[in-house]
Design a protein around this nucleic acid. Sequence first.
DNA 1: GTGAAAGCGCTAACAC
DNA 2: GTGTTAGCGCTTTCAC
Lengths: 377, 377
Amino acid sequence: MGTGVARADNGGTIGHSTDRGADSPRLDEGLRERSVATIYDVAREAGVSPATVSRVFNGGRVTAERAATVRAAAAVLGFAPNRVARSLRMQRASVIGLIIPDIGNPFFTALARGVEDAAQETNLSVVLCNTDEDVGKEQRYLEVAAAEQMAGVIVAAASRHRTDLSALVDRGTPVVAVDRRPRGASVDAVMMDNRHGGEEATEHLLARGYRRVACIAGPEGASTSDERLAGYRAVLRDHLGDTGQPIEPPPEYVVHGDFRVDGGRAAMERLLALPEPPDAVFVANNLMTVGALAALREAGHEPPGTGLLSFGDVPWPELVTPSLSSVQLPSYELGFAAAQLLQERIAGTAKPLQTVVLRTSLQVRESTSGPAANRGG
Amino acid sequence: MGTGVARADNGGTIGHSTDRGADSPRLDEGLRERSVATIYDVAREAGVSPATVSRVFNGGRVTAERAATVRAAAAVLGFAPNRVARSLRMQRASVIGLIIPDIGNPFFTALARGVEDAAQETNLSVVLCNTDEDVGKEQRYLEVAAAEQMAGVIVAAASRHRTDLSALVDRGTPVVAVDRRPRGASVDAVMMDNRHGGEEATEHLLARGYRRVACIAGPEGASTSDERLAGYRAVLRDHLGDTGQPIEPPPEYVVHGDFRVDGGRAAMERLLALPEPPDAVFVANNLMTVGALAALREAGHEPPGTGLLSFGDVPWPELVTPSLSSVQLPSYELGFAAAQLLQERIAGTAKPLQTVVLRTSLQVRESTSGPAANRGG
DNA sequence: GTGAAAGCGCTAACAC
DNA sequence: GTGTTAGCGCTTTCAC
C-alpha cells in the first residue's frame, strides 16, 4: 500500500501502481522517461477495478455510468492501452502485415492502399514491409511477423519457389497470398486473370491491324508471366490472318525479361535486331514497358507505328506521349479483397481455402492505333 | 510435476510448460493452433534454466558448450523468441516506425530504402505507415507507434502545424523528423537545403538565357515550399539583366500549388494565361512538374522553348521527352541519415538535439537548354 | 455487473 | 556462469 491514493473506495487495489518515485529502481538506465498510465492507474483514479477498465475499452458489459467515469479518468491520465501487453495476453497483435516485393512499383502501392482501406473497417493497423524482391529479406520479415504475433499477413511473394510461408502457417497465423501464390502453400489467394489479360491484349493488337505481334514476357517460371504469355499464344494460335491462314509468329517473337526496366529495354532491342522486327509488342509488365518504350524511341520506332501495349499501366501514364494502351489491373481491388479475406480468417471462419480471381480490363489509348502501313493510307 | 519431462536434471523447472494437452483450456476458441516453443521448453530440452536460454539469444555470458546445447535444443523445437513478450519486458519493441505522407511518391520510397538500409545494421525492423497526407490517419499511426512501444519513429510530417508528435515525445520515444519538421517539435531532424536548391535552379535558368522566370511553389506555409521559393526570389532580386537593370518578375509569376499533379497543371495554366507568359518555370516539386509539363504540352509550349526545371526528379524520368533538368534530392541519404540518428538516440546518446541538412545538386538535362528565341540564332 | 487473481513469454536483478 | 524469481500491462476466468 502506501500509494497514498485519495479515493477511499479503492484502497484495496495494490500490487500495481505507477508511483515510480525517484528512488524506485527503473528498468532502463537511460533518459528518465515520463511514466505512462496503465489500466491500474485509471482504475484507481476512477475507483473501479482494472478488470472494469479493461471491459470499458473492449466492449465488455459495464454500466453506462461507470463507463463514463472510467473514460473520464482515462482522459485525465492520457491513458492509451498498451498494445504490447494486450498482444501478449491475447496471443495475437492488432496488426496485419503486408509484405510486398517492390515498394517503388505503383502496382504494389495501389494494392497497399486497398489493403489499408479494407483494414480501416476493423481496428487492425497495417504495417508494410518491402522485400525488394529479395527472398532473404522476405524470410526475415515473415519471421518477424510470426514473432510479433501479427494477426495475419498478406504477402505478394518474392519467389514462387523459394518463398516459405511455413513459419506463419505452422503457428496458425492466417496468410493470404496476393498476385503470386507460392508453390504448395496452403493459403487463401487473391489473383488476377493474367491469361485473360494476355488474350485481350493480343486480340486488340490483331484487331487494330498489326500482323507481326511479339511478346516481351516476364521471367520463365513466374506464374503471372507464364499465364500472360499463354494468353498471347492462345490468341495467335486461333487467329487466321488476312489470307485465311493461321498466323504463326516465329519463336524469336517471344523474349523473356525480368519484370524490370532494363530487362524491358534489352528485350526490345533484341526484337528490333531481328531480320523482320515485329510491328507490335505486348509487354508483360509495366516496368519492362518503360524500358521497351525507351528502346523503341531510340530506334526511331515510336508507337503507334510499332504498336505497344502494356500489361498494367506504366507509372504516371500522364507523362508519356503517345499515351499507352494497357491492360488495366485491379491492383487496389486485389489488396482490398485480400484484406477482407484475411479478416474473415482472423475472425475465425472455417471456410475451405479459397482463391479469388479478379478480372483485368483493356484501356485503349494512342499507342495501338494501328501500324504505320495503315495510317494515311 | 506432472510435466512428464524425461530429463532428470531439470525436474525443478516448473510453473511454465507448453504441455497443452487436448484437455487443457486454451485462450482462443478458434482453430486449434500448433503450440509454439518458449524459452521454458528450450530450457527443459537443453537441461538449463530459462535465463540461460535468454542469455544465449541475447549475447549474455554463457559457456560455449552450453550455448551450443541450447541452440541445438532451440533448433529441434523450432524455437523463435517471442518478440511481444520481449517488448513488454523491455518496455521497448525492436521495431522502428517510418511514417510517410505518400507511398506513391518516389521521393518517399527512396527515402524509405535509405531507412531500411541503415536499420539493417542493427536488429531493428522497419515498418512503414502511409498517411496519405491525412493528419487524422497520421495521428492514429503515431498513437499506434506509441502503444506498440516502437523503439523509435521517423516521420515525414503530413502537416507542419497540425502534426502532433507529443504522444511519442511525452513517453520518451525517440523521434526524428525528415524532410519536414513540425512546428515546435523538440526532435532531431534531417532536412535538405531547400533554399540552396531553389537558388541553384533559378541561377541556372537565368544563365541559360531565360528572362521571364516564374515559379510554381508549394502550399503557402509549408516550410519546404517557402524555402525553395525564397531561394528563387533571392536570386532574381540579385540578378541584373542584360541591360544592367535588376529583373523584377511580376508578382503573378509566383503561383502556389498543392504539391500534387493537378495543382501543377492548374498553376501552369494560370501562368500561360498571363498577358506575358514566362519563358521558364521552376516547379517546387516533382509531382507538380508532371502536371505542369502536361499543361505546357497541351498549349504547344514544349520545353526547352519554355524552360522547365523540377525540384526533385519526376517519377521514372526515363519516360519523359525532352529529358527534364532537375534539382537532385538526397532522398535516400535523408532516410539513411535519419535512421542513423534515430539509432543513436535509441542507444541512449545524450547529445543535444540536432538538425542535419543535406545538400541538393543540379542535374542539367534537355528541358532547360535555352529559350526558343536563342536557338538556331 | 464487478472484483480478485492468474498468467501470456520474456529479461534482469540478485543470490550463489 | 548459472538458476530463481519478480514482474512488464493486459485480459479473462471464476466467484460473488
